[in-house]
Amino acid sequence: MQIYLPIAEVSVNIFLLLGLGAGVGFLSGMFGVGGGFLMTPMLMFIGIPPTVAVASEANQIVASSASGALAHWVRKSLDPKMGLVLLAGGIVGSVFGVQLFAWLSTLGQIDLIIRLSYVGFLGIIGTIMLIESLSAIHRRSRPDARREGGSVRRKRTWIDALPFKMRFPRSGLYISVIPPIAIGFVVGTLAAIMGVGGGFVMVPAMIYILRMPTNVVVGTSLFQIFFVSSLTTVLQAAQNQTVDVVLALLLTVGGVIGAQFGARAGRYVKAEDLRALLALMVLGVCIKVGFELVLTPSDLFVVMPRGMEGAH
């Protein structure tokens, strides 16, 4: 059954969209990630214009992060103060990202920048995650060398030397606000350009750079993602008119159902195995997008509407 998407202006099979939502939802529920980095390339692959794919995916992330953030809020497993500081950076990043997106579109380079961002970020994050999880799996096989938790005394780093320190009681931190604002900014920009929530950048950054306790990391990241993707959706709608609400809602319906089953399936797999699988998936998307950059295209010319969006 075909459905005509009013903003994307293409006719797509409705079950393909629901299935795509459910499939990505399943994986995101299982791995505890937003799934934007999988969904946006898939949408472009099935023929949704890149600008519409990125903006509509931001809208879908609003839905998926809302349910996650809410659950963490109830369990008090998020740091609202840190979330607000990250959000402050995120708002600036999102506004900047939407402008950058519009500017790159007029240059005809938006496709290239989207792809390069994917290859760069997914490549780095995927590689780090894969190495980390493989070494965790390796440690598991040698029980004597295992060291669980244990309060390792934090070493002083360059982070501690920065000014404008603030106390974050729920994370038990007293650090400068500059690093969280900078992280929020980068994530907000990525959200606008790549059509992702940015959890895959924010979560490692919170753990390794801010050294936040892991139990509040996911909740705080979802909190920030919810507000940043809401803002990105409104900005994209207001400035570029590229948010397709029908597309976003269909993906959401498939997504929420898939996520529940994914979360259940995830309980049967060990955490480090899950991280290794996720790392492989991230690298898989990175390689696929990377191939599109280097393989000779079927047509050596691109035709695009003037002063507007990407290629078709």
Partner: peptide, 11 residues
Amino acid sequence: LCVILAALAGY
């Protein structure tokens, strides 16, 4: 409206 709809759907 898109944001409100999505947030409601998530909720």
